[in-house]
Amino acid sequence: MDTIKTIKELAAKQFGGEADAIDENAPVDQLGIDSLGFLEFLFELEDAMGFPIPQESVAHVRTLRELATVIDELIAARPAAPA
């Protein structure tokens, strides 16, 4: 799964604009997302991913790229789905 693509598409849907135009390395506050808006974004992302994102895991996340790294780690740490 292309995590950063999912994140950018969700960000575009929630905050407007084109997914490709979003700078994944820019601090999220420079994308016009305030702290409450980011929490709301994480809430939607949990729905999209289908698993909870613990607060402590994203406490130091500054960019969407960093967020994608955290999500990939969470995916890797999850038990494999039964076949």
Binding site: K13, Q14, F15, G16, I33, L36, G37, E40
Partner: peptide, 8 residues
């Protein structure tokens, strides 16, 4: 409002 503002 844009959707993300309306959502608040």
């Amino acid at each position: 409002w844009p959707a993300h503002q309306r959502a608040q």
